[in-house]
């Protein structure tokens, strides 16, 4: 294993200062993704800044919404009463991710920061523009069954692997970040990036910035469902997933927020579908039409064409399940 320094910090400020000083440093919390990446030689931080002692483990609520500390384990967030009561969609998505053991270790902040599971990214003998800019994309002409159908570029067709983030995108969450200049708020939709010409950048977090919490605004969504379709019934990444949050009154959709996972470099909000659904009644035909709109413009590769049909099916099913 490549040698590295390891330090512990006890305040967000100290952590941010330490990272700002050393560009080759990385924060570590649960380590469920970072340690794998280090073992595989994908990343080799000179210094690990352990942030586990930071006071970022609270889940709080006020009139504006629910705040979840960045160090809250996924399993704790999933089982939290406030989360279940106010944002059941998030709880469902968290429980659909990984395995029980991983959910116990993985933090909310780390989940947002996790990197793609594209096999070409993980195998350092293969080309990958995300791991090594300008080396090419192994997946484009290779095995791309798990890959993106939306928002990809000619540099990268990887997908973001998180379930939690799909729900957070649908719930219009905000990522609260500590910087050297103080606190910054990043709307969830602006947090992750599309690959474009710089697939090495997963998100818009600047060097030295630290996620401290996630805020989920209060909402009126009374119909929620997270559907994940995967190759085995637990511990597998999504082929596609759908997060549905609807406000339904007297059988009419008043507001809608829908996102897909497993289809793009970031959680994929379906804004056109949301617009279409407002004012519609709950019928199978409306859901079918929504699915058609959702998959418009999808671009597939050799092994992932099934995602169009599966994506449509998943949207119909998630809407149906949410409104049962």
């Amino acid at each position: 294993m490549i040698n590295f320094e390891y330090i512990r910090t006890s305040s967000a400020k100290a952590a941010v200062d330490a990272k700002t000083k050393n560009k080759a440093a990385q924060f570590i919390a649960g380590g469920t993704n970072l340690v794998d990446l280090m073992k595989k030689g994908v990343t080799a931080p000179q210094r690990l800044i352990d942030i586990n002692a930071l006071p970022l483990k609270e889940i709080t609520t006020d009139a504006k919404g629910v705040s979840i500390g960045a160090l809250v384990p996924n399993s704790v967030a999933a089982e939290n009463k406030l989360v279940i009561e106010k944002h059941p969609l998030l709880s469902m998505a968290l429980n659909a991710g990984a395995s029980a053991q991983l959910r116990n270790m993985a933090t909310v902040g780390g989940n947002i920061m996790q990197r793609t599971r594209c096999p070409y990214f993980y195998d350092i003998t293969m080309p990958c523009n995300k791991r090594q800019p300008q080396s090419g994309c192994g997946a484009m002409e290779g095995y791309n069954r798990m890959h993106a159908i939306f928002g990809a570029s000619d540099k990268c067709i990887a997908v973001h692997p998180s379930d939690m983030c799909v729900a957070l995108a649908a719930l219009n969450a905000t990522v609260i970040v500590n910087t050297t200049k103080g606190e910054k708020k990043i709307p969830f939709a602006d947090f992750h990036r599309l690959p474009g010409d710089t697939p090495e950048l997963d998100n818009n977090l600047a060097a030295g910035e630290l996620i401290t919490s996630v805020h989920i605004p209060a909402n009126r969504f009374n119909k929620n469902y997270y559907l994940k379709v995967r190759d085995r019934l637990s511990y597998a990444f999504a082929l596609v997933s759908v997060a549905v949050a609807l406000e339904v009154k007297d059988g009419i959709i008043k507001s809608a927020s829908i996102a897909m996972g497993g289809v793009a470099h970031k959680p994929w909000r379906l804004t056109e579908v949301e617009k279409y659904l407002i004012g519609k009644s709950i019928t199978a035909n409306v859901f079918k039409e929504a699915a058609e709109i959702a998959l418009t413009g999808a671009k597939t590769y050799q092994h992932n064409a099934y995602k169009i049909k599966l994506g449509k099916s998943a949207i119909v099913e998630a809407l149906t399940k949410a409104t049962v």
């Binding site: 096999p119 293969m126 002409e141 019934l233």
Partner: peptide, 20 residues
Amino acid sequence: RYGRYINSNFVDYHVPVHAD
């Protein structure tokens, strides 16, 4: 293209889990 296994790990090579 490389004659190389690309899912030679327990994340991508799926053995059944309890839920299955």
